[in-house]
């Protein structure tokens, strides 16, 4: 910094190249536009590279045979600089991954878990959001705070007691030893994952929907009710369609997080097998055995696993954006 400042000082006093350039940028509109464009390209380029490079690397790993990954020469031809690039073109990895592990079943599990969690979260959060956003009752603020507080806890805090309960052990009050109830044995079933996921994602969804529902003018709900709906009907027919962007946001966030979830499901599914409702990530990890790790298959599986999310995000984003611009909640 010191040197730059120093050189800057000296050039400025002498009208050096930096000072002259700065001055010309300030005065010349065209030069300024060019600078902004250059800065934009640099910033956007940096962002794109850091975001997309992992995917490129995955693709490189998937196309490179396992033996080459560990022993191969990563230097680029001619230049000689080491840079990840495909060593060969082994598309067969994308077939082999399904032959070695029933990866489609793991994906199916993840889909089922994500969809059922999303449905539960949206259904409950919609009702809760309506209550918090549109009804006045004493203790509303406190209740909302309590709901939000759940999301402040790290999920791991709930893991041990939940695991204990879901194993089928009786739930006992600590120190007193009083038995409250005996949970059914839920491990290795979707319930053991969907229940905690729903509980963990509800606060955020409730918060999002509360703010959206609160913005819908009372007159619209009143109009719907006079026209012939119940409160619930007004919620479904008027308030929810008008809050579509909020619903989409809550749904997408929940779906993606559950689809990518591993922490709870790796523990609630006692083994990494599709029958135990192990999710996508469990599937990817099952290419790793005690003696071998099939990096290329893991990479291929990662790419296949991520595709649905990419599609959903692209579709949902269009939806969200169109929902926002079509808006017009003006009365």
């Amino acid at each position: 910094m010191a040197t730059i400042d120093g050189s800057n000082d000296s050039t400025e006093s002498e009208g050096g190249p930096l000072a002259r350039w700065t001055k010309s940028v300030i005065e010349d509109q065209e030069k300024r536009d060019r600078l902004y464009r250059a800065l934009f390209i640099v910033a956007a380029g940096f962002f794109l590279v850091t975001t997309l490079f992992p995917f490129y690397w995955l693709l490189v790993l998937a196309l490179t045979p396992t033996s080459q990954i560990l022993t191969g020469d990563w230097s680029l031809p001619i230049i000689g600089v080491e840079f990840p690039h495909p060593q060969g073109f082994n598309v067969y990895a994308f077939v082999e991954m399904f032959e070695q592990v029933p990866f489609h079943l793991f994906m199916f599990n993840s889909f089922v878990l994500a969809i059922s969690t999303t449905v539960i979260v949206l259904a409950v959060a919609t009702l809760a959001g309506y209550v918090f956003g549109r009804l006045e009752f004493p203790g509303r603020g406190v209740l909302m705070l309590v709901v939000l507080m759940i999301s402040y806890f790290p999920p791991a805090a709930f893991l041990v007691p939940l695991f204990d309960a879901f194993l089928g052990n009786a739930v006992v009050i600590p120190f007193l030893g009083i038995e409250l109830f005996e949970s059914p044995r839920l491990v290795n079933t979707p319930a053991s994952m969907v229940l905690p996921f729903s509980a963990l994602f509800l606060p955020l969804a409730i918060f999002i929907l509360t703010t959206f529902y609160a913005q819908i003018p009372d007159g619209l709900e009143d109009a719907a009710r006079v026209e012939g709906t119940t409160r619930l009907g007004a919620l479904v027919r008027v308030i929810m369609p008008l809050s579509a962007p909020g619903l989409a946001t809550a749904a997408v966030l929940t779906f993606i997080t559950v689809y990518n979830e591993y922490f709870f499901s790796s523990i609630m599914a006692l083994e990494n097998s599709p029958e135990n409702w192990s999710p996508l990530l469990g599937g990817i990890l099952s290419y790793q055995t005690q003696y071998t790790t099939e990096f290329n298959l893991m990479a291929a599986a990662s790419i296949v696993g991520v595709l649905p999310i990419v599609i959903i995000v692209i579709v949902a984003q269009e939806r969200i954006v169109s929902g926002l611009t079509a808006g017009g909640l003006k009365e």
């Binding site: 003018p217 619209l220 109009a223 719907a224 009710r225 006079v226 119940t230 008027v238 009365e331």
Partner: peptide, 20 residues
């Protein structure tokens, strides 16, 4: 009775057309 069963129709100050 709830509003829907009263046989009334209402025009609101803010018009309250369903924008969607």
């Amino acid at each position: 009775l709830p509003p829907k069963d009263r046989g009334v129709a209402m025009v609101f100050q803010n018009i309250a057309l369903f924008p969607h």
